[in-house]
Amino acid sequence: MRGVASGAAPLPAWLAEPEPAYEPPRDRDGFLRRNALSLASMLTVFRTPACPEGPIDRMLARVSPVLRLMGTIVCVGCVSAARNMAFVWVALAATLVVLASRPARRILSVARPALVVALLAALVNVPAVFLGSPSAPVRVLMKSFVTVTIVLGLSNTVQTERLFGALASLHVPSHVVLVCDLAIRDLALVGQVATSLNEALACRSIGHAADKSLGTAGVLGMTFVKASELARRQSDAMACRGFDGTFSVERERVITPAGIAYLVALACAVICFVYLEGAVA
């Protein structure tokens, strides 16, 4: 290197002058990353395949989605209707046992949103403390945590297709099931599109933008255009395949050994609810 440098001609004066360094004004992209990108990426949750992990979830996976759906509705109803905390504690204990049987990643994916919702619900109920009901926030916090955990447990461990099959088994009109199915699929696709647009915007944005509304509006507008395009293509594809409005889903057997065991457990939960509520009354 030394030889090359010594043999080279000296730089002309205009080239040797230091260039004025370009330093773009500092702009924190926290708004983009924490709001737009995180909101868009939340929609991609719909693409995450539900898979049972942990021994209890694997046992529950053998139960018909119809029963799981009904059981979830019954459990959520009982917890919400409970007037004393005894049944809520029993439900919390059962929920914690199911959570503890899952791997850490799954626990986090359920416990984090459940805790956020529960804390928010408790926060909303804080004024009740000053109105003579000091235990209201704790009661609401626990009920919210248990119910959200139960519902998330269902959605995390039962595939969407099986859930829609369960809806059809419950005599929900087929066009309603179709709309729900398409909506879930489209939400996932729109989330993917919005995430890609936001990532592109984050990579290409330089400098400080005081007004974030322009960028946000652009992303929202493009997402809307893309979503419309996707919907049109889907409609064309369905017409090409001769879709006549009939939406058939595969129905699963309800009465199986696992289903009977689940029904027995559900009956025990209902009896426990009735007994504990009666004990207080």
């Binding site: 504690w89 919390l92 204990a93 914690l96 046992v97 959570l99 503890a100 791997p103 850490a104 626990i107 986090l108 416990a111």
Partner: peptide, 13 residues
């Protein structure tokens, strides 16, 4: 049950 489940969850996390 509550205590055991809480401990298992905490250490799994």
């Amino acid at each position: 049950v509550v205590g055991v489940a809480l401990l298992v969850i905490v250490f799994k996390l």
